[in-house]
Amino acid sequence: MKTKRIDINEVKPTAYKPIFDLYNDLKKSTLSTLAFLLIQIRASQINGCAYCVQSHIKEAVQQGEKQYRIHALSTWRESPFFTEEEQIILEMTEEITNISTHGLSEKLYQKAIKLFEEEEIADIIMGICCINVWNRIGRATLMEPIPSQD
């Protein structure tokens, strides 16, 4: 049985401000809305954050993302539905989310630097970091997904 945990926003409302500032900056960055949502969904799947998975899938559908791509996201390496750019973003998401395993490999970094400008790589890395912060908050405080009214 889960016990109720604190709501950080109630206990310390200012704690979220820098994370929201980063999130809002990323929404205006070189990352497309779709690329940022793919990062958010994939990292949330890896981290097991049900709240964020549900929230970002709902947002992706509202933004016009195709259901078949969302369903294939956890098996993107075996799927023909993702562009080369998206595959690199997803691989970076996995390596950075699992940073203690290997870090961001030199091989992947070199692939990325050939395909993306430096500012784009910075935005990808910061997007991955941002959702990982939210996932850790969600998991630590046992945030539960809210059923969709759709």
Rank of each mutant, 00 (worst) to 15 (best):
I88D: 05
I41P: 00
E65R: 04
D150M: 01
P147F: 05
D21L: 12
G64T: 08
R69W: 03
V61C: 02
M143Q: 15
N9C: 07
E94N: 12
I131W: 01
F116P: 10
A50M: 14
L108K: 13
N47M: 11
M126D: 00
S148I: 08
I57M: 12
Q45N: 09
N9I: 09
T33L: 12
I89A: 08
N132V: 04
K17H: 11
I146W: 00
K27G: 00
E59Q: 15
S44L: 03
F81T: 03
H71E: 11
A60S: 11
P145Q: 11
I99V: 14
I41H: 05
L26V: 03
Q87H: 07
E65I: 10
S44T: 05
Q45K: 10
K28C: 00
I128M: 04
G48R: 10
T14F: 03
Q87R: 15
T83R: 04
H102K: 15
P18H: 10
Y23E: 15
K66L: 13
E106P: 03
T141P: 05
S74P: 01
D123E: 02
L90C: 09
A112Q: 10
I41A: 01
F36I: 00
S79D: 06
A35Y: 02
I137T: 11
N24W: 01
I137V: 15
S55C: 01
T83D: 03
I124E: 04
Q63K: 15
Q45H: 11
W134G: 06
Q110V: 07
W134D: 05
N47D: 12
I125P: 02
A112Y: 05
P80N: 11
T101K: 15
T141G: 04
E106I: 12
L31R: 02
F20Y: 14
H56F: 05
C130H: 09
T101R: 13
W134T: 03
E85T: 08
A140V: 05
I96F: 06
T97D: 04
Q54K: 11
S29E: 02
I96D: 01
T14P: 00
I46G: 04
L38M: 09
E10Y: 06
I137Q: 07
T75A: 15
F36M: 10
Y16L: 14
E117D: 12
K27Y: 02
